[in-house]
Computed example of a mutant assay.
Amino acid sequence: MSDSQSSNSNQTPTNPAQTDSRSAKARQMLGMKGAASGETSIWKIRLQLMKPITWIPLIWGVVCGAASSGNFTWNLENVMIAAACMLLSGPLMTGYTQTLNDFYDREIDAINEPYRPIPSGAISIPQVVTQIFVLLLGGLAIAYSLDLWAGHEFPTMTILTLGGALIAYIYSAPPLKLKQNGWLGNYALGSSYIALPWWAGQALFGKLDATIMILTLFYSMAGLGIAIVNDFKSVEGDRQLGLKSLPVMFGVGTAAWICVCAIDVFQAGIAAYLISIHQNLYAVILLLLVIPQITFQDMYFLRNPLENDVKYQASAQPFLVLGMLVAALALGNAGV
């Protein structure tokens, strides 16, 4: 027998079922669509409730805020403080938001995502409530500590944290439950993912003023588009429970176009502002980063938003978040 034949005979064939199982477990830990159920470790279940995949934009937002402040310098102290702010924005406050959302969405999750920890019975309601309060109090403690470090006379970080917690509550909980309205809910989500962590990074290393707040709220309209993408996975459950998500109100096709227009137009608007403050190179780079997003919108999302939502986000969102950093660096360079 030849060496190549021997080598081939010793190779272990790939088992598609094992591959699918590993993928489902990974999705479970990250809190993604298509996860497996049946996890028994309470700590893994708690982590699943916190949806680690959703922490990344918030952590990135802190980076953008630090960059736009124009005052961040690379030393150990600043890196540690930035890391603490990322812990605040990502695992703690986003974890709080996601756990709170799962708590109030347990009925609709039983339809759309029955593998989630609460509808599957993997964790009890008292355990979920405890987790919500622990994450919130931990976030407030770190926010107050960051205010002390920054020497804030006004507790900016603490107020931002309380504001974010309030938005998370009225987004998920009755009677307001903003997520029942496709426009208000998605903008609340988009601004929480872009503006709030950006403000935190800006306030920590510089001055949070009206200009930065308005610009990031404008940028959050692109975040509204990203938030709409998440509505497509739950369109059937939303329709059954009477939730007015954009895919339910306008239909899947029209909602997909609203989504991509919001993402592209408002990024272009930020580029136009950068040109107005003579940051032309940054504006060109930002516009160049929009082009692959449009390409992936055409390739995946607009053709079948129900099937390709995850594939589209994985392909296009890296360019959007890179564009955020480009805009932040431009603002820092311009001293805005």
Rank of each mutant, 00 (worst) to 15 (best):
residue 152 H to Q: 09
residue 197 P to N: 11
residue 111 I to K: 13
residue 42 I to E: 14
residue 270 I to K: 01
residue 187 Y to T: 02
residue 23 S to L: 14
residue 48 Q to R: 14
residue 71 N to R: 08
residue 215 L to V: 02
residue 141 A to M: 12
residue 84 A to F: 09
residue 92 L to M: 08
residue 211 T to K: 14
residue 137 L to E: 08
residue 326 V to M: 06
residue 189 L to Q: 09
residue 311 K to Q: 00
residue 119 P to T: 04
residue 177 K to L: 07
residue 224 L to S: 05
residue 282 Y to V: 02
residue 80 M to Y: 07
residue 151 G to D: 08
residue 96 Y to L: 10
residue 46 R to S: 06
residue 260 V to D: 03
residue 70 G to K: 05
residue 273 Y to W: 13
residue 2 S to H: 13
residue 41 S to R: 12
residue 276 S to V: 05
residue 8 N to S: 14
residue 59 I to A: 14
residue 154 F to Y: 15
residue 290 V to N: 09
residue 185 G to Y: 07
residue 114 P to Q: 10
residue 56 I to W: 11
residue 30 L to P: 01
residue 88 L to N: 06
residue 152 H to V: 05
residue 322 L to C: 11
residue 37 S to E: 15
residue 309 D to K: 00
residue 189 L to E: 05
residue 49 L to C: 06
residue 21 S to R: 14
residue 324 M to N: 11
residue 86 M to A: 11
residue 148 L to F: 11
residue 256 A to M: 01
residue 145 S to V: 07
residue 282 Y to L: 04
residue 129 V to K: 11
residue 315 S to H: 07
residue 41 S to T: 04
residue 193 Y to K: 07
residue 297 Q to R: 02
residue 112 N to H: 06
residue 232 F to Y: 11
residue 201 G to P: 04
residue 81 I to V: 15
residue 192 S to A: 15
residue 30 L to I: 04
residue 38 G to S: 09
residue 239 R to F: 02
residue 336 V to Q: 10
residue 260 V to K: 03
